[in-house]
Amino acid sequence: MLQIKNLHVSVGDRKILQGLTLSVKAGEVAAIMGPNGTGKSTLSYVISGREGYDITEGEVLLDGENILALEPHERAAKGVFLAFQYPVEIPGVATMTFLKAAMNAQRRARGEEELATPDFMKRVKDASAQLGVSQEMLRRPLNSGFSGGEKKRMDILQMALLQPKLGILDETDSGLDIDALRVVSEGVNSLRSPDRAFLVITHYQRLLDYIKPDTVHVMAKGRIQRSGGPELALELEKHGYQEYLAEEAA
């Protein structure tokens, strides 16, 4: 589903991704683990199309199509979804207005009919009940005054409504207490399906106790250093990332 080939990305003079190659199959949950400052968030932004990154080499293929030339909204309509490490507050934009605009924009882009209001309301109601998103939260402006946990639940609610092909979770556990982590993880787990892939970016093993990955990739110095199964995460928890950093430095 997702193939990243020899990706090189710079910001200004700084090289951040240096030949990253990674493949994620449909139905797979791939964890990317690595120390801070190694380019994990950059990777998630580059896949979803944020401005400000120079892609000097390589490609990102979604179902065989290179998406690097597409605008963020076009990538979203093709099924890319980024759950943000820090979802932004947008005062003044009503949550429901935003949800409807997003769902309908994606439907239009795919040539589907826009949702009728009752259908839209029902979908939001069902998904929010499962994620413990209250009606009161839905009435507020988007993410405004939400706690960290509320913001993450709102992001996962959006993922549930938009039904992406590829869900990227960027440090989803940051700022979450154990209870919020459980709710968010259950939300993600319920979206696991044979035709959907996840890229779970984290630097702690903790999140992977809740969202069990099929594959684990160690990222350091701007590329994937090692790939393996779930046992790799446990090994990292024990020994840390020193080995990969040192190896690279040598």
């Binding site: 979804f81 980024l82 932004v88 605009a101 997003a102």
Partner: peptide, 14 residues
């Protein structure tokens, strides 16, 4: 810019 990216990343044209 962060707000704009958030909205466009959800599929809303710029």
């Amino acid at each position: 810019k962060d707000q704009l990216f958030y909205l466009t990343a959800r599929g809303i044209p710029r």
